[in-house]
Design a protein around this nucleic acid. Structure first.
Lengths: 189, 189
DNA sequence: AAACAAAACTAACGATTGTTAGTTTTATAC
DNA sequence: GTATAAAACTAACAATCGTTAGTTTTGTTT
């Protein structure tokens, strides 16, 4: 059994570098240097560069999947479900903003099996999102604009939080959640 | 003088590949193969891989810069200015969705001079956007949520259009503009 | 058909890539 | 203090990278 904690340190350091330059532009020597060791030493703890990427992405994707399933199966209004989705994204972003960069920009570099697994999860996630909005429109809780546009605009904002939130040094998480719900659901006019 | 049209073909093919895998993961041999020629032949038309990237990104960034300047200097309401910004993004996305992928995800691979130039343009663009929202809030045309959150959520949606729009096969540009204005400004509830 | 330019080719370069093998150092347990 | 395991090291590999040099093919103009 490998030392899980050192492995996690490598994954965390990799997340930072992948966020800055992307998976393909980060070499194992870059990663090693950022930890003050040599590239070959990394392989005492990890199996491959690919393993680092897939760990970062799959763990996060599963977090979103289980969070979404919880929300879908809850018995609250469509609006409340959307609010809970916003909360989910903010929570995950606060916990692992660096890793979300890989999830958003480097998923296509996953290899065969994990790529399929990831794409399935992402598809299901979007489908759940879409169904919640659809039901909200049916019940007249949500305005009847194009459902696709609502899903797209909301999700693209939530997915970009990882870039924006770390640069805001004084916004409390609860205030952010409240304001984000307001702006995304109630508009700015 | 080099043949501009063949050069543009290379840039267009590169834009497609950069969108799929990112600048760093696309090799000159990949690019050549996608055009049915050998890698060395590319250099009859371009100076370097970096030149391809900078052409794609700088041209687009200048398009946004001049578009934003036009809007800033126009004498219309803050709301109308926001609507014109939405139009600008939709227009550019329709014309060059592939190139926007590089602008959004590969700008950090620009070299020194172009990197600084790009970052300056992006900073100025965001500052202009922020000032328009700020003035709108002052004049009570826009609700007084956090200005940063409004700028962030609107811009992140507009910046992600390049991923979403090409997948929608039946949405007319004018309908998209109208619906996007509604969703972004007036909310979904 | 001769002349010229455009655009392709082959072959190779030096550098860098992810990774492996084998060895040494460092820290912990008895 | 000796044994053991964890974590670092040096050295090197085969493959691939962007790019260059020099040559041949293709297409156009006269």
């Amino acid at each position: 059994m490998k030392t899980e904690s050192r492995k996690q340190e490598i994954i965390n350091a990799a997340s930072v570098l992948f966020k800055e330059k992307g998976y393909s532009a980060v070499t194992m020597r870059d990663l090693a240097k950022s930890m003050g060791i040599k590239a070959a030493s990394l392989y005492n703890h990890i199996q491959s560069k690919q393993e680092i990427l897939s760990t970062i992405i799959i763990d996060l994707a599963e977090e979103f999947t289980s969070g979404m399933n919880r929300i879908v199966n809850s018995e609250v209004s469509s609006i409340q479900k959307l609010e809970n989705i916003i909360d989910l994204h903010i929570d995950v972003t606060l916990r692992n903003a660096d890793g979300l960069a890989s999830l958003n920009n480097d998923w296509m570099h996953l290899e065969e099996e994990n790529l399929q697994y990831f794409e399935q999860m992402r598809h299901d996630y979007e489908e759940s999102f879409r169904n919640i909005v659809k039901k909200g429109v049916d019940k007249a809780e949500i305005k009847a604009y194009s459902i696709e546009i609502i899903v797209f605009s909301t999700l693209s904002t939530l997915r970009t939080l990882y870039l924006w939130y770390p640069k805001q040094n004084d916004i409390d998480a609860d205030i952010l959640k409240h304001d984000m719900v307001s702006v995304l659901l109630q508009g700015v006019v």
